[in-house]
Every structure is written in C-alpha cells, then in structure tokens.
Design a protein around this nucleic acid. Structure first.
Lengths: 187, 187
DNA sequence: TGCAGCATGTAATTTGTTACATGATTAA
DNA sequence: TTAATCATGTAACAAATTACATGCTGCA
C-alpha cells in the first residue's frame, strides 16, 4: 500500500489538509508507517488530479493558502477496491537497531548500553503518545482500536525484553562498573 | 544502515557468496531486514571495488563461476567505524497488514478474518524458522542471541494478540456464523 | 531574540524492487 | 516432467527521503 492510498483512506474519516495528514502519520500511524511532506503533498495532488478527492483553497494570512481535501464517491469506491484486492499484505520491519545489536561484539559496551537506553526511551514516548490518543478518542471503531492495541502490545513486549536484558547484563557481567551503570549519556 | 554495510557485517563471520548472504537474509535477518539479489550483488561488487572485500572466483560446471567474498582488514575497520557513528539507529515498521486492519470497517468480515489467519500463519512459520536456526547453532554470541530472542518475543506477542482478537470476534459478534467460524479459506 | 508551529511545495538524490536473462543438476 | 536448488548479474522502474525555498504568528 502506497502513501497515496493511505492518504485516501485517512480522508474517509473527514476532510483534512496535507499538514493534518502529516500529524496523523506522526500520531496513530507512526508505529507502522512513515511519511513526510515530500510524499504526502504530491500524493494529494495526484489524488485531486484523478478525481479521488476535491480540493478547496482557503486563503490564510501570512501562510500559503490552506488546501482542504475531501474524498469523493469515486475516491471511496477506489479505496474500498484497493483494500479488497490485497489478501497478502506485507508487514515489514527494517531495524537498524537490531542490525547493530546483532554485531554488538564489535561495539564498545557503553555504546551498546546507550543504544538500548535510547530504544527504551523511544518506546516509552511512543507508548505515551498512544495512551494520549486513546484518552482523547471516544467511541473508537474496532479497526483503529485493534491497530492501537497491537502497537501497545508489541511495544510493551519489546520494552520488557530490552529491560530484562539490561538487568541481566548489569548484574552478571564485569564489563560494566556497578557504580556507573545506567549512566547512558548519549541523549 | 544500507544493504552494503549489512553485507560487510555478515562477512565478518566468514567468507560467503552472494547466494549465501541471500540465504542469511531469508533466515536470521528476515524478521528485521529484507534484501534481494538485486541489492546484494551490486553491494558486493561495490565493496570489492573499494577494497572492503576480496573476491575469488571458483569455476563451476553448468553454473556461473562462484564468487567467494572475504572481508579485508580495511573492511573490518570500516564496518566498526560505521557501527560507531550511529547512536540513533532507527527501527521502522511498514505494515500493510495494520494499515488494512485500521480500515477494517470497509472490508468484508470474511476478508478481515482471512487477513488475520494469514498473518498468524506467517508468524508461525517465522517462529519455526527461528527455532530451527537456534537448534542448529551452538555457542551463539550475545548479539545474535539478543536479536533472535527479540524476534521471538515480539512475534509471540503479536500471535497472542491476534489470536485473542479472533476469539473475541468469534464469540461476541453475530457477523460470523458459529458453524462456519475459523474456516479461513484464503490459503 | 529566537524558536516552534502553521502551511505549502519542488527537485535531486538515494535506495531498493521487479523483471529479465541464462542454465545445469537433482529429487519427487 | 516439473519444480527446486545452485549461481550470477543487469536495466528499468518505483518509491520515498532529503534538502531546499518561503514566510507570518505567537510564545518565552
């Protein structure tokens, strides 16, 4: 599924600007998809050109005119069809974190520790964000609820696993000074 | 981290051909990175050209000459440096599965069920593969062990989550016939 | 005084995927 | 006889990232 289809899907729940969609990619969608302005704006332009969405310009002062996009009936149809025609959707992970951890033996133990700490913090902030969104949303539909729950589950499992490993390393090994442990300077 | 660096890293544990590396991408690495021949072969050619690896051709009958790659000292140095210069490694998920599930309301319940079933099976086969690799490997180093354990943990958590959701849907709702449930035709 | 937020977009570059091209051996 | 395994590679294509370009408002 490309960004274009995803933008179209997002518009099924109401009008939005490119800027709005970006915020969604940073929110609920952030744990399973990424997209920047460089893909969102061209996607919306394409969708408008092919009649999937309409675009209403609203003049703003001191900013470029706001472009409000709304999905058309054709757009909704097309979106449903693209959902229907995919019974083998992929789920891919691309992790520099795991790749580096795989080669931990080539790294300074301090760097490894920093890496783990960094990842834990990232997981925690994502988890916080998901919680905030849940609190703000009422009457959540099963789809979004499933996806959010999935994210929370996986994130918690990852957090537990990394935490357990850190404790194990901290207590068993000698390559980390007991007094200095959990220092984790790098951010 | 690009495929080139990853190939270089893989070669730290011994000589290999492009074909060998592809198999590794299908094995231990499959749950956090993907790469096809189209990226591996050019990567190895680049590495050889820049002196990171050496290449020995061994003639074979009925096949193209086998090219055995070995990492050089310069290659090892370069690899260590690229590991050291990355204290904020990303961990990205790109999931068509979750994207589709987010929009479950636009899909036929049967398709949703098939989607879940399909994902469960994929998780199971990946888990089996990881188990097989573990059985075959003795004296595993901490890096690879951490990564494999991470994969198992996350995969199990995902499996449990999806299974629990299927049961919930199967028992509570009326949009699935009790007699036909868990049929999951699509593969 | 400076930064974050709002708001849009383009162009070059990077990166990886897909399809193509070849061809012997071996097990089912 | 059919498919899988071994074994290499290229060229066209698709997709997304990054850097660039602009500029007001409001808060600290």
């Amino acid at each position: 599924m490309d960004i274009k289809t995803l933008c179209l899907g997002m518009l099924t729940s109401g009008e939005a600007t490119g800027y709005d969609l970006k915020k969604r990619f940073e929110g609920t969608f952030s744990h399973f998809y990424t997209a920047g302005y460089g893909s969102i704006y061209p996607a919306l332009a394409d969708l408008a050109e092919s009649g999937m969405v309409t675009c209403t310009e609203v003049a703003e002062q001191g900013k470029p005119a706001k472009k409000i996009y709304r999905i058309t009936d054709m757009g909704t149809e097309s979106f449903k069809k693209s959902l229907g025609g995919n019974d083998c959707p992929c789920h891919k992970v691309k992790s520099e974190f795991l790749a580096m951890m795989y080669f931990a033996q080539f790294m300074d133990p301090k760097q490894v520790s920093g890496l783990l700490q960094h990842r834990l913090q990232h997981i925690e902030s994502t988890l916080d964000m998901l919680k905030t969104i849940t609190a703000e949303t009422s009457n959540e539909q099963t789809g979004p609820a499933f996806v959010r729950g999935f994210g929370e589950t996986i994130l918690k499992a990852a957090h537990d696993y990394i935490s357990a490993y850190k404790i194990e390393q901290g207590s068993t090994s000698d390559h980390q000074l007991p007094g200095t442990r959990q220092d984790a300077s790098g951010q």
